[in-house]
Design a protein around this nucleic acid. Structure first.
Length: 424
DNA sequence: TCTGGGGTCCTAGGACCC
DNA sequence: TCTGGGGTCCTAGGACCC
């Protein structure tokens, strides 16, 4: 049996930890650039604040109801996430961190009759140790566990945030109560098709033949989904600490950007950030990609499908050194940039990742390479322990007035000494 | 006026090989 | 006029996740 443990309104819960006055009050957390609502408390949901909607559209509800608003504070959420995951590792032999606020636990060693009590124990311990409240779903497969978790969250009072689907009968009822668009692995595109075909509940989908799923739902992915819904594990627990295969840093700008030099500054800044992530997992990148997005003139167009143009360079030799990666990236920007256009977003991607052979120093490369490696290490350490970007490359610019807005961010209470919470 | 920032996996199709 | 069968590797793009 597998469990999924999911933090309730995670970002909002983190903000409330340091603002006990907001307990049981409506609050929301915004995405970068204060663009979208990415987390909302139950109270805010009940007032009619939608999920993942643009902030400006919900603004009137927010102001009318005096809902507290926060810009996202990823230092705080990252640190709280680590504490939750550390707690979960004391509770199961195998833990797969699935996202910042979710983890799968392997509970197959536990007798089935103890599962419900153990799930409640997990919930209580995480809340007691970290202050974050979680929901727990338990079932024979990951997909059914996610479905159980959804039900636990939907009616917190009745379930106590814990739902266990042991028997086939329990699973059937849960499947019948779940709409296809709420299934883990069914997104907007498939949901639309399924409903057109008259398949509306998870139960109906689970009764479709595997060959049908293979033809109509993305090949093996669809077959796995059907099996998982029927209670046959088809998606295994993943190993942890697997290195990323791609590293991206992308941002909206705080205002439209028209000057090439600003675009170059932004891309140099993003490369610096991406290269840090690269070195943290001791990888080097062979491919550098850059994309820029111009402001959509046609207001009827879907804003996400704005005019994105991109290009990439393949390096002769994989590198993890910031300056070696900035150079090709800047050249790409120069190619992509068009005078007179307004840009709203840019991003960089590092791929073709391989283990970084220069980590230990390499006899077969010039000594200067190893020197650079030490320099990078020193810069990373300084930037990690001091303020962000205390040391950076000149091409990243000094003023950065294209930077995103983050006007409502709370203090980084748990990761910066100077921002430690004071109690008088 | 104002719409995030990461990631993963899978498939189809082209280039190339013998 | 006729023109095989099989395989690998790579990339672009689509779908999904939180």
């Amino acid at each position: 049996m597998k469990a999924i443990v999911d933090c309730n309104s995670f970002y909002c819960s983190c903000e409330r930890l340091f603002r006990p006055d907001l307990q049981n009050k409506p609050i929301v957390v915004l995405s970068n650039n204060d663009g979208c609502i990415i987390s909302r408390s139950d109270e805010a949901r009940k007032l009619g604040v939608g999920m993942a909607g643009p902030y400006f559209q919900a603004r009137h509800i927010i102001e009318q109801n005096d809902i507290s608003v926060f810009s996202s504070n990823y230092h705080l959420y990252g640190d709280m996430s680590r504490r939750v995951m550390d707690t979960l590792r004391t509770l199961a032999p195998e833990v797969e961190v699935y996202s910042v606020d979710e983890a799968f636990l392997d509970l197959s060693e536990l007798p089935v009759e103890e599962l419900a009590a153990y799930a409640r124990h997990i919930r209580n311990r995480v809340e007691q140790w970290t202050g974050i409240s979680v929901s727990v779903g338990v079932a024979p497969t990951k997909t059914l566990a996610k479905l159980a978790n959804l039900q636990a969250k939907k009616d917190k009072k009745a379930t106590g945030c814990v739902k266990v689907l042991l028997t086939q009968e329990e699973q059937r009822i849960a499947l019948q109560q779940t709409r296809v668009d709420n299934i883990w692995g069914v997104g907007r595109s498939y949901a639309g098709k399924l409903i057109n075909w008259g398949i509306t509940s998870a139960w109906e989908l689970s009764n479709m033949p595997e060959e049908w799923a293979h033809t109509n739902m993305g090949g093996v992915t669809g077959v796995r989904l059907i099996r998982e819904l029927r209670g046959t594990p088809a998606i295994a627990m993943e190993d942890e600490l697997v290195n990323k295969r791609m590293i991206a840093t992308t941002r909206m700008f705080g205002r439209p950007v028209t000057a090439l030099y600003e675009l170059k500054e932004a891309v140099a800044t993003y490369i610096s950030r991406a290269a840090e992530k690269l070195r943290r997992q001791q990888s080097a990148a062979k491919v550098v990609s850059v994309f820029i997005v111009s402001k959509e003139q046609d207001h009827l167009a879907d804003f996400k499908r704005g005019a994105t143009i991109s290009n990439y360079t393949t390096l002769d030799r994989a590198s993890s050194l910031t300056h070696e990666l900035i150079k090709p990236a800047i050249e790409l920007v120069e190619q992509l940039f068009e005078n007179g256009k307004e840009y709203k977003k840019a991003g960089v991607m590092l791929s073709g990742l391989v283990p970084d052979s220069s980590v230990q120093g390499n006899l077969f490369v010039p000594a200067s390479q190893n020197q650079h490696r030490h320099l990078m290490h020193a810069i990373d350490n300084i930037n990690f322990s001091m303020r962000d970007d205390a040391v950076k490359f000149g091409s990243s610019g000094m003023s950065k007035n294209w930077k995103m807005r983050q006007e409502l961010r709370s203090a980084r209470h748990s990761t910066r000494w100077e921002e430690l919470k004071e109690i008088k």
